[in-house]
């Protein structure tokens, strides 16, 4: 029974993939929009039937009038509900990585070219859909949230876009695959920083955290994206000299290495401890390198290095 259901679902997914192929930008059109009456719509039909019976029994043409008017409204609602979705463009937006346990934000952009759209609802059922409006010729950034439960890529699958506007009698919807995904880093777990055992050559220094690259002030240079923000020369910035970064020279051979092997606990625990270590060291402005089985990241103190480390931790051991 279950396998039958699964097969059914797989077939449905295949059909959807053919009909609405995954794309970073999707325009909703008649191939992609489905429409059926809602429960309220059926209730409305019941109301019309009651009115019609009244009209027939009382031979009252005005009652006929209203019954037919509502019936026409019902028919017109099909077109209008379809219209309240058709032509809408949905576009993928890059997401910001989160840590396990946080709410992952999956942003996307709604673009209204020819008309405005009201009361759109987007989301991944069974989670509650969130609403959005888009003005004509405008675009709206919509942020959808999902709980991040596991590290790695969070791929929520096909997104449901629906509209019951204007009358709520019909629901028009589509399932679009915008290739949305968000990187989930392991949850940081506080603890001792798992440093690599450097062996004899570093004996004289001992295995301590060395404030590498912070002792020798070298001068200033202009800021580049990726520089550690803690080294910004704010005084100069306030004097209007632009964004400058204080440059320090680290001493060679004193790099800190984080090592998977020296962390304690199971795989996930180790990754969590390393995550915490990466965050702590970066915050303190240390340059550090990281070694995971099969991965080695050369020491650096830049934000992009931190991100690369976290990424490696998030994706460690997962099929790509």
């Amino acid at each position: 029974m279950r396998s039958l259901l699964a097969a059914q679902r797989a077939r449905w997914q295949r059909w959807l993939n053919r009909r609405i192929p995954p794309a970073r930008e999707v325009r909703l059109d008649q191939r992609r929009i489905f429409i059926i009456p809602t429960r309220q719509g059926l209730g409305f039909l019941l109301l019309i039937a009651l009115l019609l019976i009244g009209a027939i029994n009382y031979q009252n043409n005005l009652a006929y009038f209203l019954a037919f008017w509502l019936l026409s409204l019902f028919l017109v609602a099909i077109l209008n509900t379809y219209r309240s979705l058709s032509g809408l463009v949905l576009r993928h937006l890059p997401s910001v990585p989160v840590f396990v346990g946080e709410q992952a934000c999956l942003p996307l952009e709604l673009i209204a070219e020819r008309r405005s759209y009201q009361a759109l609802a987007l989301g991944w059922p069974p989670a509650q859909l969130s609403g959005a409006d888009v003005e004509q010729g405008g675009n709206t950034r919509v942020e959808l949230f999902l709980p991040a439960a596991k590290r790695g890529w969070l791929k929520p699958g096909r997104l449901r876009v629906e509209s019951r506007f204007p009358l709520g009698l019909f629901v028009a919807w589509s399932w679009v695959d915008l290739d949305q995904q968000v990187l989930v880093y392991p949850a940081p777990m506080a603890g001792a920083i798992p440093l690599a055992d450097h062996g004899a050559q570093d004996d004289d220094e001992g295995v301590r955290i060395i404030p590498a690259g912070v002792d020798d002030y070298q001068g200033l240079r202009t800021y580049q994206p990726g520089d550690n923000k803690r080294r910004l020369h704010w005084k100069a910035y306030s004097r209007g000299q632009g964004l400058l970064v204080k440059e320090f020279a680290g001493l060679a051979g004193r790099d800190v290495w984080l090592d998977f092997a020296s962390a304690s606990g199971g795989v996930e625990q180790r990754l969590s401890r390393l995550t915490h270590a990466v965050l702590t060291l970066h915050q303190q402005g240390h340059a550090f390198g990281m070694r995971l089985p099969g991965v080695e990241l050369a020491p650096s103190d830049s934000a992009s290095h931190r991100d690369a480390c976290l990424r490696a931790l998030a994706l460690y051991g997962l099929p790509t």
């Binding site: 580049q224 994206p225 990726g226 830049s302 992009s304 290095h305 991100d307 990424r311």
Partner: peptide
């Protein structure tokens, strides 16, 4: 342009 994973630019 610069690649995300590439710090050197």
């Amino acid at each position: 342009v610069r690649q995300q994973a590439d710090a050197s630019g």
